[in-house]
Amino acid sequence: MKKLFITLCLCSIAFTFNAQEAEQEKPIERVLDTTVVLSIDQTIKALYDVISGEKGEKRFWKQFKFLFHPNAKLIAGGRDVFGEYKVHYMEPKEYIKSSGKWLEEHGFIEKEIHRKTEIFGNLAHVFSTYESFHSESDEAPFMRGINSIQLFNDGKRWWIINIYWTQETQLNPIPKAYLP
């Protein structure tokens, strides 16, 4: 009888630990923050926050898509392997498909280090200089560049219309006017 009681206790303890481990492994339910588009500052901050994360950290792509106008484009600019300047146009869902896995596998933290904003009515243009890291613990960025972000306000919120970016290179350093 004692052996049966001890066996039942051990099984109960093991079940409790397994249940606690399973509960800890459940992903945290993220809630879409609809307030981040009420100002340009919040929209830009949300953009950097949503694409940034440590290695293995999933991005909240629903929040990412919420920032963009339905007809928005993300445009990567730079030189190809032949040294010719090229641009590559993507919709937000294409960006997620082409970059999402890489961001999660390698870690990608993008930080804004300088900003110049110009506004005319419901049109805004933000020149946002960034530094990119694989981890918050990195001492130096592995990449820098400028995001040219166009936004539209429909009277209710700010929409990202386009992001056109290019990376800094030795031949194309970031001008001092766009650095802190």
Results as ranks from 00 to 15, higher is better:
residue 4 L to M: 03
residue 6 I to K: 00
residue 6 I to L: 04
residue 7 T to I: 13
residue 8 L to P: 02
residue 11 C to E: 12
residue 11 C to L: 15
residue 12 S to K: 08
residue 14 A to Q: 00
residue 22 A to P: 06
residue 22 A to Q: 08
residue 23 E to R: 13
residue 24 Q to N: 08
residue 26 K to F: 02
residue 27 P to F: 03
residue 28 I to S: 14
residue 30 R to C: 09
residue 30 R to W: 12
residue 31 V to N: 10
residue 32 L to Q: 05
residue 33 D to Y: 01
residue 33 D to C: 03
residue 35 T to Q: 09
residue 42 Q to I: 06
residue 46 A to K: 09
residue 46 A to M: 14
residue 51 I to C: 10
residue 57 E to C: 11
residue 57 E to R: 10
residue 57 E to Q: 15
residue 59 R to C: 05
residue 60 F to H: 11
residue 66 F to G: 06
residue 67 L to H: 06
residue 70 P to F: 00
residue 74 L to P: 02
residue 74 L to D: 13
residue 75 I to G: 04
residue 76 A to C: 02
residue 76 A to L: 10
residue 82 F to K: 11
residue 84 E to L: 15
residue 84 E to W: 11
residue 86 K to P: 11
residue 87 V to T: 12
residue 88 H to E: 15
residue 92 P to V: 01
residue 94 E to R: 10
residue 98 S to T: 15
residue 100 G to P: 08
residue 101 K to C: 04
residue 101 K to P: 01
residue 106 H to F: 13
residue 111 K to G: 03
residue 111 K to T: 08
residue 113 I to N: 09
residue 115 R to A: 11
residue 120 F to D: 15
residue 124 A to T: 03
residue 130 Y to C: 14
residue 133 F to H: 05
residue 133 F to Q: 05
residue 135 S to M: 00
residue 136 E to F: 09
residue 137 S to L: 10
residue 139 E to R: 13
residue 140 A to R: 14
residue 140 A to F: 15
residue 144 R to H: 00
residue 147 N to C: 03
residue 148 S to W: 10
residue 148 S to R: 05
residue 149 I to L: 05
residue 149 I to R: 01
residue 150 Q to V: 07
residue 150 Q to H: 07
residue 151 L to A: 01
residue 151 L to F: 03
residue 153 N to H: 14
residue 155 G to S: 01
residue 156 K to C: 03
residue 157 R to I: 11
residue 160 I to F: 12
residue 164 Y to V: 15
residue 165 W to Q: 11
residue 167 Q to L: 10
residue 168 E to K: 06
residue 170 Q to K: 14
residue 171 L to G: 12
residue 174 I to D: 08
residue 176 K to P: 02
